[in-house]
Amino acid sequence: GVTLFVALYDYEARTEDDLSFHKGEKFQILNSSEGDWWEARSLTTGETGYIPSNYVAPVDS
């Protein structure tokens, strides 16, 4: 299955590639091989962008 991640904090995008999000928003991670910045798709907005990996945690299934 796909592991979903949930935002622990609000984040405001600093570049066009970043994804702004709110605490509690859920994400599907598309690429986590880039280190501290993961490519993710928000399940709330459907938008794709980079998120700071230390702002999210796995959702307990």
Rank of each mutant, 00 (worst) to 15 (best):
G1W: 07
G1L: 03
G1R: 12
G1M: 03
V2R: 13
T3G: 07
T3D: 03
T3S: 05
L4N: 13
F5L: 04
V6P: 00
V6L: 06
A7V: 01
A7G: 04
A7T: 03
L8K: 15
L8C: 07
L8V: 06
L8F: 03
L8R: 12
Y9L: 14
D10Q: 05
D10R: 03
D10L: 01
Y11G: 02
E12R: 13
E12Q: 13
E12F: 14
A13R: 06
A13F: 02
A13G: 05
A13E: 05
A13D: 02
A13M: 04
R14P: 13
R14H: 14
R14F: 09
R14M: 12
T15G: 13
T15E: 12
E16V: 07
E16Q: 14
E16F: 03
D17F: 05
D17R: 12
D18G: 13
D18Y: 10
L19C: 04
L19G: 00
S20C: 07
S20I: 01
F21D: 00
H22A: 15
H22K: 14
H22M: 07
K23Q: 03
K23C: 08
G24W: 02
G24S: 05
G24P: 01
G24I: 01
E25D: 13
E25Y: 06
F27Y: 01
F27K: 00
F27E: 00
F27R: 00
F27D: 00
I29T: 06
L30Q: 06
L30F: 04
L30E: 05
N31K: 14
N31Q: 04
S32V: 06
E34R: 10
E34D: 03
E34F: 03
E34Y: 05
G35F: 05
D36K: 11
D36I: 07
D36P: 13
D36M: 04
D36N: 12
W37G: 06
W37A: 09
W37E: 05
W38A: 12
E39K: 10
E39I: 08
E39A: 05
A40W: 00
R41V: 13
R41S: 10
S42Q: 11
S42M: 11
S42P: 01
L43S: 11
L43R: 07
L43E: 15
T44Y: 07
G46M: 06
G46R: 11
G46P: 01
E47M: 10
E47P: 00
E47L: 10
E47D: 08
E47Q: 12
T48R: 11
G49R: 01
G49T: 01
G49K: 01
G49I: 00
I51K: 00
I51Q: 01
P52T: 02
P52R: 12
P52L: 09
N54R: 13
N54A: 09
N54F: 05
N54Q: 04
Y55A: 15
V56M: 08
V56S: 01
A57P: 00
A57K: 13
P58C: 05
P58K: 13
P58H: 06
P58M: 08
V59N: 07
V59I: 10
V59Q: 08
V59K: 10
D60W: 02
D60T: 09
S61W: 05
S61I: 03
S61N: 04
S61T: 15
